[in-house]
């Protein structure tokens, strides 16, 4: 079944139709989630009552658009705040891990590598509860020992950042390691021969080389954090990130303002995805 082997026409047409149907299945939910953002109706469902931008810009109940919906805009801000810190931490530690695994030899290196991969196989909900349980144990331990309660470790944004960082770092490590592996060590040695110190050589030669991977890893980390739900659900306090707010609204049944947020999410993540492909492709060839 390859183009060079002749097949009955009926078979080829059926096969192509199946693949077409597959792509309809793939795109249908995204298309309807986006389309109903513009429906002039109180609910994200048929009938289609005409085009409106109210669900973006509407400024009064019951037609409150995203831009004027305080709870939604606030949760977008919270998500961005969380995603920013997760990205900074995960890319930083990922870079350190990449140098550790690609450049150093030490006992138990393989064991540590396996452990580094482990967060990928732990379901997000379980990662969330284990961190919840452990932070609570730490609070109680310190409270019993010295009588101080550390409220920062109660469910809240600090824990959400730590919980997402716990598994996103594995991904940034893999992305950055893959690029560092392709680095030609003689370039760094040349810098050392020309009188650079080790730090200067790494900073002026290796880091610029890693830049596409660092940007790519950063984009992936930001998106994964922004869109994370499972781990966040278990660790969230009173400040709800966007996914938690959207989830609560979804269960209550919501106005098409939720479709408007969905469309914005799609546009932003699509743009970031394109950017990461572009960054990696543009510099990847060197």
């Amino acid at each position: 079944m390859i183009p060079s082997i002749p097949q009955p026409r009926a078979f080829r047409v059926t096969y192509a139709a199946y693949v077409a149907l597959f792509f309809v299945y793939l795109m249908a939910p995204l298309a309807v989630a986006a389309a109903f953002a513009f429906n002039d109706s109180m609910f994200p469902s048929l009938p289609w009552n005409g085009f409106t931008l109210d669900w973006f810009v509407g400024d009064a109940e019951p037609r409150l658009g995203v831009f004027h919906d305080g709870a939604l805009t606030e949760s977008i801000g919270i998500s961005a705040f969380v995603a920013f810190w997760v990205t900074v931490l995960a890319v930083g530690v990922g870079l350190s891990n990449a140098f550790l695994f690609e450049r150093q030899t030490f006992p138990f290196r393989n064991l540590l590598y396996m452990l580094m991969l482990a967060p990928l196989v732990v379901p997000g909900v379980i990662l969330g509860i284990s961190i919840l349980v452990f932070s609570n144990s730490i609070i109680n331990g310190i409270d019993n020992a010295v009588g101080v309660e550390i409220d920062a470790l109660r469910p809240g944004l600090a824990l959400v950042v730590l919980g997402q960082f716990a598994f996103i770092t594995t991904i940034t490590t893999l992305v950055i390691s893959a690029r560092l592996r392709k680095f030609d060590l003689s370039l760094e040695e040349a810098a050392l021969n020309l009188g650079a110190t080790r730090m200067v050589a790494v900073w002026t030669v290796t880091i610029p080389y890693l830049k596409p991977a660092l940007i790519g890893a950063g984009i992936v980390a930001f998106l994964m954090s922004f869109e994370n739900f499972n781990t966040t659900l278990m660790l969230v306090g009173s400040d709800a990130p966007l996914t938690i707010t959207m989830y609560d609204r979804l269960r209550e049944g919501s106005t098409p303002a939720l479709n408007a947020v969905s469309l914005m999410l799609m546009v932003v993540s699509g743009a970031l995805a394109l950017l990461s492909v572009f960054v990696q492709r543009n510099r990847g060839g060197r």
């Binding site: 939910p29 298309a31 309807v32 989630a33 739900f229 979804l250 969905s262 970031l272 995805a273």
Partner: peptide, 22 residues
């Protein structure tokens, strides 16, 4: 094109299915 849904939040995808199936 197969990778597109991955970049979109699972919440949005599920929301899309709710609109389709309700």
């Amino acid at each position: 094109l197969c990778l597109v849904p991955f970049w979109v939040s699972e919440l949005v995808r599920t929301f899309g299915w709710m609109i389709l199936l309700r």
